[in-house]
Design a binder for these strands. Structure first.
Lengths: 197, 197
DNA sequence: AGCGCCAGACTAACCAGTCGGTATGTTGTG
DNA sequence: CACAACATACCGACTGGTTAGTCTGGCGCT
């Protein structure tokens, strides 16, 4: 058997990614040395550079994972067979829950984008844009049907809501009084209330 | 005259602060070397370390300035003689306008807090908390008077709104279709609409 | 004749990435 | 089945470069 695993059963690339995610979230990308990462993962630099092209690649992998998951979940809610209010509420709440469930990824996502190389940065921005547009389409659909107010441009509404999602990693504490689902319901409710005609 | 100014008439400490602010916003704190800062300010390291104790101090100064200004402005709106809806709307819109007017400061503020030394970080958090509480008090006042919905805890509403302010530096572009005031009016409107009973 | 203000060389530390090397497999061949 | 040829997975010392911060000294003003 090739030694892709060590004493622990998790494959080395995943261990590296997990260690990097945690450390990037805790200390930031620049403050985290690859030496720290490999030590946390229980390997050495040779292993890291065997699987990843650069430290930058590690960061990119984190982004790619988050983006893919969130896009899939949004699509599922948006394509569901339900009134647009329910679909929007579901999607808006879901992104909050999954963000809280992966607060480390969220911290990195919103704080470390500018550490990506230019081409990777561009790629991530493009995928984020697709996500944004899918969400906006939901709001525009409701506005056309007359169930949402048209007082505010849909683009701005999307940014308003994602601002709060973005902000979660700043203030949400798992040991606080609210469960992730409660926070999600409240934030989705605020969005829907703001959109009442 | 002591040479606190150079060819240009601006005092050296302010030139250093301005250069640091711009560079921190453009490249991030870690990616900006003190060498770059002093070159941008037209001085050398001797000057920087004459006026500031550390690179960290420079960052702290940026925070202190922003915090002081925003607290003053919030207090002015909150203490005004007007119905609570108007005071909240005014404060909510004002923080958006002043944030857009100082997008560099905002980028730094929300992206570089964790680069502060622990004690400075704690100090900044304490001042942010005061700001948050003043804002929350406005919402609670409206809720007690029955003009705002009590469906959502006031704390969460504050975080919801500041999420969007926080997020401005990510998406707002001065050459976009909306003026700062228009964005501010829309965002304040969304807040007030969400709070309708 | 002193002092605020600043220049610029210097230091000690750190860091991303490289590279030669080793160990453990797998595949091909007679 | 044996053995060579190759491939994969990883180690860890090393390199070239960068960095925050220090220190000595000097200029110009009072």
């Amino acid at each position: 058997m090739p030694r892709t695993t060590d004493g622990d059963g998790t494959p080395v690339p995943q261990r590296l990614l997990a260690a990097a995610t945690r450390l990037f979230a805790e200390q930031g990308y620049d403050r985290t040395s690859v030496q720290e990462i490999v030590e946390a993962a229980g390997v050495t630099k040779g292993a890291l550079y065997h699987y990843f092209g650069s430290k930058d690649d590690l960061l990119h992998e984190v982004y790619a994972r988050v983006l893919r998951i969130q896009q899939e979940r949004l699509d599922a809610f948006a394509d569901a067979d339900a009134p647009v209010e329910e679909r929007l509420r579901g999607a808006a709440a879901d992104v909050v829950v999954t963000t809280i469930d992966n607060l480390d990824d969220a911290s990195i996502f919103f704080r470390s984008m500018h550490h990506l190389s230019p081409e990777k940065h561009k790629q991530v921005r493009a995928e984020r844009r697709r996500y944004h547009e899918r969400f906006r389409a939901l709001i525009e659909e409701g506005q056309k049907k007359g169930v949402f107010s048209t007082a505010t441009p849909a683009d701005l509404v999307v940014d308003y809501h994602f601002g709060s999602v973005h902000h979660l990693s700043t203030w949400y504490r798992p040991d606080g009084p609210l469960t992730p689902q409660q926070v999600a319901d409240h934030l989705a409710d605020l969005l829907l209330r703001a959109l009442r005609p």
